[in-house]
């Protein structure tokens, strides 16, 4: 130790900052540079240690997973109730969450498209009230997006007409993201 050595805490903060800006009082003093390398190695090793722990972790107990998913479904964000019959005697309902599921299913069925999110605008709880659907999708890079968007719009529209009594005013498609094939080149 000499007067030029700095505290480990200062070295840790320097490491946190990505060693920017370059600090000669650390980098150019051999004792400090050596301690800095040790800290960096400890940090990397700690991450690797956790990754090793995780890799050694046995497959999750299926009962554990199903227990968690059961609680998740109990807290399902089902949203508003949507009447299933437009004849006034609205005794049958489906939840907004179930409608979102139908939209996801229809959108996912278009090759190259995956639904990210969707929303139903309008008073869906009233029979015959016009509803505006917005679907945000991720599009496979390289596909002609306007055609894909049309296909998603068509699939979602058809699905909702078949399975619900919603009075659909419009189905808007927003391309929120682009994705690659797994084997594709990195962008």
């Amino acid at each position: 130790m000499n007067d030029d050595t700095v505290t480990l805490e200062r070295l840790a903060h320097y490491l946190d900052s990505g060693r920017v800006p370059y600090d000669p009082s650390i980098e150019d003093v051999p004792e400090n540079a050596s301690q800095l390398a040790t800290l960096e190695r400890l940090r990397v090793l700690s991450g690797e240690l956790l990754a090793e722990d995780a890799a050694a972790d046995p497959d999750p107990d299926p009962r554990w997973i199903s227990g968690v998913m059961e609680r998740v479904r109990q807290e399902a964000r089902s949203g508003r109730d949507i009447p299933l019959d437009s004849d006034g005697a609205a005794t049958l309902h489906m939840t907004e969450g179930a409608v979102r599921g139908l939209i996801r299913e229809a959108g996912d069925s278009v090759p190259g498209a995956v639904v990210i999110s969707c929303s139903l605008g309008g008073d869906v709880s009233a029979a015959d009230a016009p509803v505006r659907v917005e679907v945000v999708i991720s599009a496979l890079r390289g596909q002609y997006v306007p055609v894909m968007a049309d296909e998603v719009r068509e699939a979602v529209t058809l699905q909702l007409l078949r399975q619900t009594e919603l009075d659909i005013e419009a189905v808007d498609i927003v391309v929120g993201d682009v994705h690659l094939l797994e084997t594709g080149v990195a962008s």
Partner: peptide, 12 residues
């Protein structure tokens, strides 16, 4: 039954 708006492809 539906008026299909055409917002697709514009919002990237």
């Amino acid at each position: 039954r539906i008026d299909l708006s055409n917002r697709s492809g514009d919002e990237t």
